[in-house]
Design a protein around this nucleic acid. Structure first.
Lengths: 189, 189
DNA sequence: TAAAAACGTTGACTTAGGGCAACGTTTTTA
DNA sequence: TAAAAACGTTGCCCTAAGTCAACGTTTTTA
């Protein structure tokens, strides 16, 4: 049950068995169906999620109903509505499963308690933030001022199996182009 | 010399005088002219900067020479080519002053040593990352799929004096629109 | 397992906004 | 402080990509 999480943590830092078990004891496994809402638009996010199986997506919709996807987390990755988790303000975004999934959840309280009490876990959180930050920056540079085709080439280079893992529609909403445009571009590559 | 930095730290966490002085001892003040390069495109970033006076900008240029601005830091804020500082890879972006400035610099080594040794400073770093992450996310949602006019309205709402502090050209490169378009829109608002 | 809904693809049409150039103004520099 | 460079604004033109609709296919659900 904690195998993936264990190797995730150990890929970041050395850690003794005791600390590891304290951390594990804070997580519980939930099995959820596809398209399950984990955080709703107006909700304040109260959990961090680690994907054991399946995948989750963070996205929002504008006034005309157009979706913008901010983040995907797949097997072996953490994901949550992080801005809301940090500030405890309404998320203004959705966190949902994109397929039938098995998730390890930890409450916000336990998460930050562990960050404060277990140095190794503080480092894990630091890496989550650093990685999230870097990805976001790359995305700004990778997308801003790029043509639709350049974006698609960029994502194929930087996350090769991204286009295979998510639907056309979701990929388009991540890239900030319309599904029709993405469809047209894919035939040309 | 450390007044601004002191209130910055104290706005984040309580801290004893001794720790504060240890931190201060790692920073040195530099006075730099406008348009000074602090990190060059191919360079690995080795310092974190705190702006005492003036302002700095992080940006890159694509193959056609078009600039994209990722971040500004003004008085009382930290700024650096953070992805490069974290990973110690070439920045692929520029860090430059946008006006005559006074900066407190701390070396990467001292910065992370302080993060590891002074809990209050670890918290400061955590907030830098959290804030950077949240701003980047907001920017993705605020810009993706928005029209040029919506972006300008967005920035006026979220950072009211942004358009007053930076040049038209830099503002445009931050918003991801052309200077001409920004110019045209401003007359309509 | 059959009906309904969502999705992907493609064609025809429309438009936001970029490129370029001109020109006056401000800023920089030597 | 004078020449040069950079900047902001505006007009004209053009194209990338969005919208809408149609239709076949896949997925969902009751």
């Amino acid at each position: 049950m904690f195998k993936l999480l264990e190797s995730y943590i150990k890929s970041i830092t050395e850690i003794d068995e005791q600390s590891l078990n304290v951390i594990f004891s804070k997580f519980s496994l939930i099995k959820v169906r596809r398209n399950q809402t984990l955080v709703d638009y107006d909700e304040v996010c109260k959990h961090h999620y680690f994907v054991n199986k399946g995948g989750i997506r963070v996205y929002t919709t504008n006034s005309e109903g157009v979706e913008t996807t901010r983040y995907f987390a797949f097997e072996g990755e953490f994901g949550t509505a992080l801005p809301s988790l940090i500030d405890q303000k309404p998320a203004f975004e959705y966190l949902k499963t994109i397929e039938k999934s098995e998730l390890l959840t930890i409450s916000r309280a336990d998460f930050y308690l562990s960050v404060d009490q277990i140095p190794a876990f503080a480092l894990v959180y630091r890496r989550i933030l650093e990685k999230g930050f870097i990805i976001a920056q790359k995305r700004i540079y990778g997308f801003q001022g790029f043509s639709a085709m350049e974006k698609v080439i960029w994502i194929k280079t930087n996350q090769p199996n991204f286009l295979l893992k998510v639907s056309n529609k979701m990929a388009a909403s991540y890239l900030g182009i319309s599904p029709s445009t993405l469809s047209r571009i894919k035939t040309k590559l």
